[in-house]
Nucleic acid binder design. Structure first.
Lengths: 262, 262
DNA sequence: CGACTAGTTGAGGCCAGTCAATGTTGGTGG
DNA sequence: CCACCAACATTGACTGGCCTCAACTAGTCG
């Protein structure tokens, strides 16, 4: 991760989520997310680039906007021109279906880059909506392409970004296509845990930024089912829930749950 | 679509599927798939490129292989180096889950390009397996990237290809996350219909290249459910099934089915 | 012809959805 | 500060769609 201010992701805000107990171990993450942590994620667009390139990237960031909870970053159907890097906060992407059959397609955290689905038809396919007050950097895709033509490692990073989005969705398809409700929810919580962990937050205790209904939409379940399962997980000692605060008490058992046959 | 032999896709084989009744109308498609037909598809990697570029692309196609039904094109975990353009035949991609929880992630027809999920981690995430005897062109991804650096329109096409794969999966997620079994199957058949249509085959009568179990895997259903629904659709006059041959008798009604609330 | 795979159909069970009542939380204004 | 409201969440009773298990049929290939 470079040192150019525009690209650094905001350090975890004190109140934004539950910060890991031992801050010493994670001090490096405070200045910007450690790229070595995020092999599975999309944040490595700037991975392994020289300082000169980073300066060029700096110029790419045309606008850095704040957006309030509930605000729309972009809408399905709106013309595509930018990718958006989340600097702080979080957002959801929502795939609109006919007659209100909408579905949450993803939850996105600082360091992740969204909007890739719009390249194909020059218009966005999803809505992107902030789940909390957030900061977002808009990156001109034309200029990203221009940079990619001149800078081979960056080109590779850009392709990785797109490819990992494909891979992420493959995994999600597997979840929706083959797992029971409890397995889906367990997978979801473990996924959040990993991603918070990679950002220097506690992997075992965090605040859900979305409603039960939104979780359900993402997992192909109804909100009542999500609620019931959270209660059941608590009864079984797997987690502890208090509103949107979740503590994962037995991640090993949660992982075991996933291994069960259908 | 250019005229370079290596890139031309094979004309519909007489016995491969049911050819449209009026061949005259579709004669253009015989020499290579018409790019204007395939806005929704991934086959436009060569769209709108000059003859010179096409010659360069010709050199990219390092191997053109035949592969027999059931043969593996690439395996999950195997090192990534190539994208594969299907020239004739068809194949499935299979996402392997823990303990045999595999799922079909996609069915792929002539003109489509697969393997994009491997870029992100330099290793394939899925298996690709031929559903029938097929011809496949392997494209060195390094050289595609090289070409993309020198040729802006091609770069854009490459990015579109990747983005459309993301968009395709978004749609599939919507299907798996929000639709009933009958709606999923109807959507599946209509999707095949559209894609056969774009290739100059009949949109209303075609041969399924996959088993009921594979259809079920793709749609998150069990093979018995698929079988029962095909029977029901036939009873209701929506389709006519005979083994793997399907006739869509009332596509309007099938589309209406999708509009129903959950 | 037998072995095997693919497909169909039926009976019954269970998981998750539906409907409905109630509880909790957080923001707003008096 | 509290009352109020709306949005969010929990829980229960019931329903139904899809899965499971199982028997049987139809092709296919050696």
């Amino acid at each position: 991760m470079g040192t150019v201010a525009a690209i650094q992701f905001a350090p975890p805000a004190r109140n934004a989520n539950i910060v890991r107990a031992q801050p010493m171990l994670r001090e490096v993450s405070r200045n910007g997310i450690h790229c070595s942590d995020c092999k599975q994620q999309n944040m490595c667009l700037w991975h392994d680039l020289g300082a000169e390139t980073m300066r060029e990237i700096d110029r790419l960031v045309t606008t850095r906007t704040r957006c309030r909870k509930g605000e729309t970053l972009y809408r399905a159907g709106s013309p595509f021109a930018m990718l958006y890097a989340i600097r702080s906060g979080s957002c959801k992407t929502v795939m609109p279906g006919e007659d209100g059959r909408d579905q949450v397609a993803g939850y996105h955290m600082p360091g992740e880059i969204i909007g890739c689905d719009g390249i194909g038809n020059d218009s966005h396919q999803c809505h992107a909506i902030a789940l909390e007050d957030s900061e977002v950097c808009a990156l001109s895709f034309d200029r990203l392409e221009q940079l990619a033509r001149h800078h081979e490692p960056f080109q590779r990073n850009l392709h990785r970004l797109l490819s990992r989005e494909i891979a992420r969705q493959h995994s999600l398809l597997l979840v929706l296509g083959t797992m029971r409700a409890d397995q889906r929810l367990s997978e979801f919580l473990l996924d959040l845990s990993r991603r918070y962990d990679a950002r220097g937050y506690s992997p075992s205790e965090f605040v859900l930024r979305m409603t039960r209904e939104e979780i359900g939409s993402y997992l192909g379940l109804k909100l009542e089912t999500v609620s019931r399962l959270l209660s059941r997980f608590q009864r079984e000692g797997l987690i502890q829930v208090q509103g949107r605060t979740v503590k994962l008490l037995d991640r090993a058992a949660m992982r075991e749950l996933l291994a069960q046959a259908f």
